[in-house]
């Protein structure tokens, strides 16, 4: 059994910025519980002597030279923006009224 609870799912929704409905929380709790139960087996073989692999092909020191290029115009940057003032992206208030 995993420790997936509706409260945890709701908290994960906040962290992930997804406004989950109660129905979604309920169904996700059940689904995640089953999925987590089936994938938790990774810890069986992941002993401390096994190093982690983050990149399938090991490379290092891949750098770019410090030469300007590849810039977007403001129009290109704003082309897909839901809202802007013509030069900057506009978002609604960051803080709520109580803050």
């Amino acid at each position: 059994m995993s420790d997936i609870t509706p409260d945890l799912v709701r908290h994960l929704g906040v962290l992930a910025r997804i406004q989950l409905s109660d129905e979604e929380v309920t169904s996700l709790t059940g689904e995640l519980d089953a999925i987590v139960a089936s994938i938790a087996q990774v810890s069986e073989v992941a002993t401390s002597d096994v190093p982690a692999t983050s990149h399938p092909i090991p490379l290092e020191n891949v750098f770019r030279e410090d030469i300007p290029g590849d810039m977007l115009t403001t129009d290109e940057a704003l082309r897909n923006a839901p809202d802007s003032d013509g030069t900057r992206f506009r978002v609604t208030a960051i803080l709520g009224e109580e803050q």
């Binding site: 891949v62 750098f63 770019r64 030279e65 410090d66 590849d70 810039m71 977007l72 115009t73 403001t74 940057a77 704003l78 030069t87 900057r88 992206f89």
Partner: peptide, 20 residues
């Protein structure tokens, strides 16, 4: 917004490359 490459906006498909 004039000193912008795709990765600075997090545009879909963009990738970072480290400045030596």
């Amino acid at each position: 917004n004039t000193l912008i490459a795709p990765v600075d906006l997090g545009l879909p498909g963009s990738m970072p490359v480290v400045n030596r």
